[in-house]
Design a protein around this nucleic acid. Structure first.
Lengths: 154, 154
DNA sequence: CTCCAAAAGTTGCACACGCATGTAGTTGCA
DNA sequence: TGCAACTACATGCGTGTGCAACTTTTGGAG
């Protein structure tokens, strides 16, 4: 397979991705006043066992810069959804954790996210050219099931 | 398969997507002073048979708002890479087409884009949790080969 | 012990984007 | 012909993001 072919597939996937993310963004914004990044941050802090995560770790998971993460946490902190906890051992480190109302908002937002995704996928399947792509995503979701979190490479 | 499982897979894919796009963005920025959107715009105007595309059509393809498309074209126009052509039939319509130097820059940028994508995919394959995902993308690129362009649904 | 490089977060700045609005041109209908 | 609704772009404004510079803290070398 040529590089060009793969690149063409990649750009098509990126466009589809963008379209679906836009739909999810609007749904989350309309119903809960949350951006996708804000939702993902709450998701990481609400779901996993360790409810307390370092700023830099959040930046890696969300694929954001440090500064964007700082302000993302600040925004949610100002809304009382997240709180900063200073680390005792390493006083440079700051942990973010979800508050009770943060977890509540997350629980309400999860169905919105999932239903918007379902709707977007169904819609995308309607376009004949995208059908194989969408069905590949379905397979993909199966395979990724046991994934715990994303780590960045150095 | 549960909605949650699919959503988890989707968020993982989105994160990987974002990571790779960031790498491509940096490569294009460093070597050719182009953002990914700018590259994609040039790509659509340089490659296909019809080198002349309406603003709104570009917005659909790039998954951007009208205003973002206006300014995207303006930026490239100021650099002499693209030119606006007023439509004769419908004088509201404006066509964008690549200039000679725009096509040249595109031709130089294509290898950068493709190599950055290859490198990012190889890197992602190194992370054990992402391997199935990446290989799914490989399959995907094959299936999408005959795709000509992306159209939005009304 | 002192000094210094590296790490974790924050902040100033520039910029690309979306939304709402404005403007020019088109279409339809009375 | 004249007016209203609509379309295609452009523009003002607010905001989220990345980069670079800065502060505080840590850990190690001399």
């Amino acid at each position: 397979m040529s590089l060009e072919t793969r690149a063409q597939g990649w750009r098509t996937l990126a466009a589809l991705q963008q379209r679906i993310e836009t739909k999810i963004e609007k749904a989350l914004q309309d119903h809960h006043d949350l951006s996708v990044n804000e939702f993902c941050l709450l998701h990481h802090l609400s779901v996993p066992g360790g409810p307390s995560t370092r700023m830099q770790h959040l930046a890696e998971m969300l694929v954001l810069s440090q500064s964007a993460t700082t302000r993302l946490v600040t925004r949610l902190e100002n809304r009382g959804l997240v709180k900063r906890v200073l680390s005792a051992e390493d006083r440079r480190g700051i942990y973010a954790e979800a508050t009770e109302s943060g977890r509540e908002l997350h629980d309400r937002a999860v169905p919105t996210h999932n239903e918007a995704l379902e709707a977007a996928l169904r819609e995308a399947e309607g376009l004949p050219e995208l059908t194989p792509l969408v069905s590949a995503l379905e397979t993909l979701a199966l395979k990724v099931q046991p994934l715990s979190g994303l780590e960045a490479q150095p």
